[in-house]
């Protein structure tokens, strides 16, 4: 499983309130949420993002609220992967749980807005096609790969229940 797309680049402490403002949390429909994804930090994001594109940020991405609506909005907006130097812990857990692939990589700070990037989840290898650079993130442990492949924890639990 791989991801490939053009990069939307952000800085430190991108919080869940700018990823999906609370004024839209009266809905939990992924499509409704995607329509306002990143609205308070990048009003052009929804218009410009194409299916498969990648978000790259610096430290503490997803800090703040526990709202699962934040990774849901990003996933439903068609983003294939989020790469950051570090993630806030609840966002990290939520992203994996809903099957949005995310990678921690310090060198990812070198990626710039608009770069074309390819990610191999099995190895954690991130290739910057625009700059001809390769960065190494930690590969997912087996149980996380299974969750992502199933499309989230709930799907995986359901599949396991069906097989048991």
């Amino acid at each position: 499983m791989d991801a490939k797309g053009k990069v939307f680049k952000y800085g430190n402490n991108v919080d869940t309130d700018v990823i999906i403002p609370a004024r839209y949390l009266n809905s939990s429909d992924p499509g409704d949420l995607a329509a306002h994804c990143m609205e308070d930090i990048d009003p052009e994001f929804v218009r410009r993002a194409a299916r498969g594109d990648i978000i790259v940020a610096e430290r503490n991405f997803g800090c703040g609220s526990s709202r699962e609506h934040a990774p849901m909005a990003i996933k439903a907006a068609g983003i294939s992967c989020v790469i950051a130097r570090t993630f806030a812990r609840i966002f990290y857990r939520n992203a994996i749980n809903i099957g949005l692939p995310i990678l921690e990589c310090d060198e990812a700070a070198r990626i710039r807005q608009g770069d074309e990037v390819m990610v191999r989840f099995s190895s954690g290898e991130i290739t910057n096609l625009t700059r001809g650079e390769v960065y190494q993130a930690q590969a997912y442990p087996e149980f996380m790969r299974r969750i992502i492949a199933a499309g989230g924890l709930v799907n995986q639990v359901r599949e396991e229940m069906a097989h048991s």
Binding site: S65, S66, E68, I90, R93, N97, G152, V154
Partner: peptide
């Protein structure tokens, strides 16, 4: 996310998402 409040009572208490 503010479920960590109950640490005031000497509990282990933490915020998670909806799937958890």
């Amino acid at each position: 996310s503010h479920t960590c409040t109950y640490g005031a009572l000497g509990a282990f208490s933490t915020g998670t998402g909806s799937t958890d």
